[in-house]
């Protein structure tokens, strides 16, 4: 169980990136954080990963407070971030420092097979395409068996076909150990394809606008009517979040104009 309690983040320059985020994610649940750019999705993920510190509030994973990177939490960034001087195999094994050589080889080999890159095991990252690199990054995060996996728009730089196949690979890996997944995305289709719940966020300051359960059966049929209606529901919520954000803004402007006179 991952709990975010009254989480806020204000940057040194006074920008309020997040304000009062409350969210609990069940074990093995896949949650999609969705919203336009600048609503603090990535900031939230970095807080959970322990890469940044919250200004207020707490993150708890099964009762333990998270303030710095934790072995139970893995993350896949927006870019692959592979180490260019390590081969594909060594990149995947990067987090398996304390594991014996035989087991490491076994786990890396399995992860490689799962993401379909077995024949590229000994190549350098520079020889792989963007989609293949991102698959290596996903394998690198999965191979340490984290309880929570954070995905920061890992598919946003890829074309639609590659993205769809990566969704398959991701769900294939997820099925094995069923970690809790928090996925940041701005792609509604992606959220509905992968997640059990969509959390719609709103910018300035970043906060949760609405939560929508997406209780579709897996594997999900993307052409079915229930998929379509789920997409439409999320889109409607997103629309609404943008409108309610604009209304007070206009009100503020009017007030500012009044003061100016």
């Amino acid at each position: 169980m991952l709990n975010l309690e009254h989480l806020s983040k204000t940057y040194a320059d006074g920008t309020r990136a997040l304000s009062d985020i409350n969210l609990s994610v069940r074990e093995s649940e896949i949650v999609a954080l969705i919203g336009g750019s600048g609503c603090g999705k990535t900031t939230l993920l970095r807080l959970i990963a322990g890469l940044d510190r919250a200004s207020a509030g707490a993150i708890r994973l099964d009762g333990t407070t998270i303030t710095e990177p934790d072995a139970a939490i893995g993350i896949v960034f927006q870019e692959p971030r592979l180490l260019p001087w390590l081969t594909v195999t060594d990149n995947i094994a990067f987090g398996l420092d304390g594991v014996g050589a035989a087991e490491r080889r076994e786990r890396v080999g399995h992860a490689l097979a799962k993401v379909g890159l077995s024949e590229h095991a000994d190549r350098w990252p520079r020889d792989l395409s963007g989609g293949q690199q991102q698959r290596v990054a996903i394998a690198r995060a999965f191979v340490t068996n984290p309880k929570v996996l954070l995905l920061d728009e890992p598919f946003s730089a890829l074309d639609a076909f590659t993205r769809a196949s990566l969704h398959e690979h991701l769900l294939g890996l997820w099925e094995e150990t069923r970690p809790t997944v928090v996925l940041v995305t701005h792609d509604v289709q992606e959220a509905v394809t992968l997640a059990d719940r969509a959390v719609v966020m709103q910018p300035k300051p970043g906060r949760i606008f609405d939560e929508l359960p997406l209780s579709l059966a897996r594997p999900r049929d993307k052409s079915g009517p229930s998929f379509d209606s789920a997409v439409r529901r999320v889109l409607a919520a997103l629309d609404q979040s943008l409108q309610t954000q604009h209304a007070p803004k206009r009100e503020q402007d009017r007030q500012a104009a009044a003061l100016w006179w």
Binding site: L51, E68, P69, R81, L83, F94
Partner: peptide, 10 residues
């Protein structure tokens, strides 16, 4: 960004 990868793996 690469240094952060190191931090994530503690």
């Amino acid at each position: 960004k690469l240094v952060e990868v190191g931090r994530v793996f503690r």
